Simulated assay, not measured.
Amino acid sequence: MPQSSEDSDALAERVVVLPKALHARPAGQLARLAGRHKETTIQLVAGEKKANARGVLAVMAMGAVAGTEVTVTVTGPDADAVADEAAGILTAAEG
């Protein structure tokens, strides 16, 4: 199998605890991150709610507040780096 096919199957997961509510700015940053990595899927799970990071409104509709544990699952090329960046967005001190 070519290397690029193997990379497209990469999977990375990060679990973060939100320091504050997940609002429009970080949701938008996640959507832009997803847009830069078109072959990658970024899925967020908080409790029973799930959202694809490409959808700002879907991410905001999760209603995740400070202290919520969010699991970020990334599949596709550069999954580890994208997962790290997504986790960084969610845990950033500035909103």
Rank of each mutant, 00 (worst) to 15 (best):
A53F: 05
M1P: 06
L90I: 11
R14A: 00
A81W: 04
R36K: 12
E85W: 01
L57E: 15
V72P: 00
T91G: 07
L11D: 05
K38Q: 12
G88Y: 04
E85M: 06
L90W: 06
V65P: 04
M1R: 11
Q3Y: 14
G28K: 01
E6M: 12
L30Y: 01
P77K: 14
R14E: 10
L22T: 02
V17S: 11
A53S: 12
L57D: 15
A92P: 05
A10K: 11
A83K: 00
P2Q: 14
A27P: 05
G95C: 10
L18F: 08
T91D: 06
A46K: 07
A31W: 01
A34F: 02
A81S: 14
G63Q: 08
K38C: 07
A21H: 03
I42M: 06
T75N: 12
L30K: 03
D84W: 00
R25G: 01
L30E: 02
E69H: 11
L30P: 02
V56E: 13
L22R: 02
V74F: 10
E6K: 12
R36D: 12
P2V: 14
A86T: 08
G76C: 05
D7K: 12
E85D: 14
A79P: 03
E6N: 10
I89G: 00
V45N: 04
E48W: 11
T73F: 03
G95E: 13
G35W: 05
A21Y: 01
E94H: 14
I42S: 03
